[in-house]
Simulated scan of single mutants.
Amino acid sequence: MSEVTPIIPQATSKRLPLYYRFLQNFSNAGKKRVSSSELSEAMKIDAATIRRDFSHFGALGRKGYGYDVDNLLVFFRSALDQDEETDVALIGVGSLGTAFLKYNFQKNHNTRIVVAFDPKVPKEGKSISNIPVFHPDMMEEMIKKMGINLVILTVPAKAAQEIADRLAAIGVKGILNFTPARLSVPDWMRIHTIDLSVELQTLIYFIKNDVKDSQL
């Protein structure tokens, strides 16, 4: 019989990079084992939620012992493909896009921005923070040439759907959307939208109403 791949809840999947980051912190501090309570205190996530998340992946710990930090790091590194770098394209080099280029993810993660596009760039392109930036007329050609499947979108909202359509047409698999536009894409394409204005309004609501959500 073929092995059945467990279905991991989306909320759990979103927390995996956080677990990996905090486990790295514990490892860097010389800690060899950690309990769900200690992770809970550090991450401000309920311990029961942590144990439930880990249970989706089998027996990661032992009762009365907790979790071996190095073993967990190996497991989450593999689960998150931390040993394999992912090339990313950035579309839209305004204030937010420029900040992404200056930071770039390769410093702390397994992803790196390798090319960017912006309509204000001359046809021959230019370099920003050592990253080549081209006019959007070159977008399809360069993304296919570089084999990129993940794009960060920081364009004006009115341009977002057109760009998404062009990306879908060349088979890009995922968009991290920083525009307020709700994009319509094929079922096989993944969209993660981060609307900064909505996040800010949510935070304001929580502050005014003294609402705390340990699962965020």
Rank of each mutant, 00 (worst) to 15 (best):
I45P: 04
R77G: 15
L183R: 01
S55T: 03
I8W: 01
R15S: 03
I91V: 15
W188G: 10
Q82W: 03
V155T: 06
V185S: 02
N149V: 08
L176K: 11
S78L: 15
L196E: 07
M146T: 13
L23S: 05
P180I: 04
S197D: 13
R15G: 02
A11D: 10
K126W: 08
F100A: 06
L73Q: 03
A159S: 14
P186Y: 01
M142V: 05
I204D: 10
S197I: 07
H56Y: 11
Y67T: 11
L39H: 00
I128Q: 06
S55P: 00
E141K: 13
P119R: 07
E41M: 11
R21D: 08
S40V: 04
Y19K: 09
I207Q: 04
L23F: 00
I131Y: 09
V34D: 12
L101S: 00
M146K: 14
G125R: 08
N177A: 02
D118A: 14
D210F: 01
I128G: 07
L23E: 02
K123S: 12
Y205R: 14
I131W: 09
N149A: 09
P9T: 00
A99E: 07
Q106A: 09
D137L: 01
R77P: 14
R51W: 02
D195S: 06
A59T: 15
G125P: 13
K107R: 09
F105M: 11
R15D: 02
F117M: 00
T12D: 11
N110P: 11
K145I: 08
F206S: 11
M43Y: 01
L167P: 08
N25M: 12
D187W: 03
N209S: 07
Y205M: 03
L39M: 07
H192I: 15
S129N: 15
K107S: 12
S13A: 10
L73M: 07
K208A: 05
V115Y: 15
F178V: 08
L176V: 12
A160S: 07
W188D: 08
H135G: 06
V93D: 01
G171H: 03
L18Y: 05
T193L: 14
A59F: 13
P132W: 02
T49S: 04
N130V: 01
I170W: 10
V88E: 03
I170Y: 12
N177Y: 02
L167Y: 03
Q215Y: 03
S127I: 13
L150F: 06
Q24L: 07
L167R: 09
R51H: 09
R166Q: 10
V88D: 08
L167N: 10
L80V: 05
I207D: 12
V172C: 01
S2P: 10
